[in-house]
Computed example of a mutant assay.
Amino acid sequence: MGVTDDFDLTAPELTRDDLLVLEDPYFHTDTVALVTGAASGIGRATAVALAANGLTVVGADIDEDGLAETTAIAEDFDAPGTVHGVETDLTDDEDVDAVVEAAADEGDLRFVANIAGMQHIDPVAEFPMDKYDLLTDIMLRAPFYTAQKAIPHIEATDDGVGAIANMSSVHGHYATQAKPAYITAKHGITGLTRAIAAEGEGTLRGFSVSVGYVLTPLMVGQIQETAEERGISEQEVVEDVMLGQARTKEMMTPAEVANLFVFGFSGHGSHLNGADLLWDGGYTTTYE
């Protein structure tokens, strides 16, 4: 989405042409990818993109209707792979156990994309602890527990090749005001990613994906909340607050982020291990 005089605060519609499709020996229906947060936004785009690459995808999300829509999109795209939605509360260990087992039942579980997320904006001194606990449960504890349960299945494949990818952020590289729980979780994801890589024997990789602001339904809500909090327009939030520091004056789309997961899971990412795909338009490396 480019910022123009005709400001339109809507998440873009996913299209088949948006998706990166690669030839890869592991990209076929016998290979399973587990994607959390698959009912909308980046998680949905990643689930559909992996299905477009021929994988069998198990999508986990608390939103059952959203999962059904993700499955329908993959079908509408005539994806060679499939998306199977499993209603999952990531704060419930039994639900996580069940969705990992469901993924393993579909074939060779090799890939996990921990994408599910949420946001709450308040300074540290005013941050509600119930929101902190929920956010870190979903965005840090759940990825750890999901990895813990998935790793034995990946190691049990014929060659132990696979990868666990974690959704990070520019906020995993630096801090801004009033997002302390999100920043804490994203910094923690860096440690989890490196721990997976350290134990993966070179065949099971861990990597993360960090991007700037992505126009998802979650982000639309955050823009509206920020505009109200600061007493400025939604367009000013995007142009000045969100894109002001970036050199690339355009918000990313969910499909562009999904393509990074596709690349990272593929053989092209074989040396991406314990590291971060930082696709941030210059947020963290430049300033005026």
Score class of each variant (00 low, 15 high):
G269K: 04
H271K: 11
M251A: 10
V262C: 09
I232C: 05
A275E: 14
D280P: 03
M252W: 09
E239Q: 13
V241G: 00
G282P: 03
L260Y: 09
G267N: 14
G269Y: 00
W279P: 00
K249L: 13
G231D: 08
L272C: 05
A275Q: 12
P254A: 00
G281P: 03
H271M: 13
L243H: 03
T253Y: 02
A258M: 04
R247H: 11
N259L: 00
V241A: 12
E239Y: 10
G269C: 10
L272Y: 01
S270H: 09
E239H: 04
D276W: 07
M252F: 05
V257I: 13
T253L: 09
A255I: 08
W279K: 01
N273V: 10
G264P: 13
M251I: 03
V241S: 00
R247A: 15
F261H: 04
T248F: 15
L243R: 00
F265W: 02
G267E: 14
L277I: 15
A258L: 06
W279H: 12
G231S: 02
Q245G: 09
M251R: 04
T253W: 03
F265C: 10
R247W: 08
N273E: 01
N259Y: 08
D280A: 09
F265E: 04
M242T: 09
F261V: 14
A246S: 15
M242I: 09
D240C: 02
S270V: 09
G231E: 03
G264F: 03
G274K: 12
L277E: 00
N273T: 12
P254I: 00
N273S: 14
V262L: 10
Q245A: 15
S266Y: 07
K249W: 02
